[in-house]
Amino acid sequence: MKKVNIKNTDLEIAPINFGGNVFGWTLDEKQSFEILDKFTEGGFNFIDTADTYSWWVNGKGGQSETIIGNWIKERKNRDKVVIATKVGSETKEHGFDISKKHILKSVDESLQRLGTDYIDLYYTHFDDNKTPVEETLSAYDEIVKAGKVRYIGASNVSPERLTESFEVAEKNNFPKYVTLQPHYNLLVREKFEKDYAPLVEKYGLSVFTYWSLEAGFLTGKYRTEADFDKTSRGAGIKKYFDDKGKAVLAALDQVSAKHQSQPATVALAWLLANPLVTAPIVSATSDRQLQTIFDAPELKLDSEDLSILNNAGK
């Protein structure tokens, strides 16, 4: 598996980022261990989680980090994996919060759950849009200097606050964000391409897309109105089952048939064909889904494929 470098870091990753939101939610610890074992055995090494996964189960989260930490402890492989986690998201216990007090408290809690003394990549998960940028970055400066965090990234931060963060970091010699985690996929494109892509290029950010398969819509498993009532995520993405969504599914079918592949693999390969995307974030709960992920970096789409996919639904 050819590794890629996260820009402005010494971190090397295989070009798929496993989304750990399923750990402690749709997968129990035993099942999570099995998926993680197979993911790393496939040559992949990048795992993404958050301190609040899966807060929707218990109101506060922490399950995903705990499971990953238990797996690392049992497998004794901390030096072989790159771990990203996040701070600032809302739970039933607190609102969005990237204050210095919350970051300093949360990073220690994440380290304890993960059973490690350092986090490779630590994200601002959600901006609270009230904490001064200087305060947030000074907290990151403190924990980076303490060796608790190696690098920082941003997710769900507005273009304006992201730009301000770079200006403040430059002025105060604070750590700079090295990665961006945006909501971006074949179906949801405009915000990233219009507002964030120029900043990605300007600041040399590595991009890890979340909802890369739009909660399963781009796998092609939703083909009728009734299909959306069969899964827990169906109701949230039913809005995409319009003319545009159907056109995107048809394009995925066309390209996957040509390559004897799966729609999900094609959707991930489309992301990987974008020079601004370093690695899509995607989850799997079965061997079949995992193979779909494994196939994506090997699938090279040609100009005709990309034209079909890029123009779908326009």
Rank of each mutant, 00 (worst) to 15 (best):
V277C: 09
L186C: 10
P15K: 05
S232V: 04
V57E: 09
D305F: 02
F33I: 02
I308P: 02
H183C: 12
F192H: 10
G220C: 06
S32V: 01
A264N: 10
I143W: 05
L252Q: 01
K101C: 03
Y196D: 06
K130E: 12
D295Q: 12
K30Q: 15
V282R: 03
L249R: 04
G88Q: 13
G69F: 04
Y118S: 07
S303A: 15
L252E: 01
K2P: 11
L309G: 09
T85G: 05
E225D: 13
S303V: 12
W211Y: 15
W25R: 01
D28E: 06
L213E: 06
E201I: 02
G59S: 13
A312P: 08
I103G: 01
Y184C: 08
G216S: 04
D253N: 12
I72W: 08
D141S: 14
Q291H: 13
T163K: 10
S256M: 10
T85E: 09
L309A: 07
P15F: 03
F39A: 01
A251H: 08
S32T: 01
L104Q: 11
T124V: 15
V149P: 14
S89T: 08
L249Y: 09
K86N: 11
D117P: 10
L137E: 04
P159Q: 10
G313R: 13
V57C: 06
E164W: 07
I6D: 08
F241R: 03
K105T: 14
I103M: 05
Q262S: 12
V144C: 07
L299K: 13
K60F: 07
A296I: 09
H125D: 03
T40E: 12
D195N: 15
N274P: 05
V277N: 03
L114K: 00
G220L: 07
V57Q: 10
I308L: 10
P198W: 11
K300D: 05
V81A: 06
A279E: 01
T85I: 06
F126S: 08
R78N: 01
D51I: 03
L272D: 05
E214M: 15
I47F: 08
R161A: 00
I16D: 06
N70K: 15
V144Q: 02
T116G: 02
L301T: 00
I13V: 14
D37N: 15
T163N: 07
L187T: 08
F217T: 06
I293M: 15
K2C: 02
M1D: 03
K171M: 11
E12A: 13
K86C: 07
D229P: 00
Y184M: 08
P132L: 00
Y203W: 03
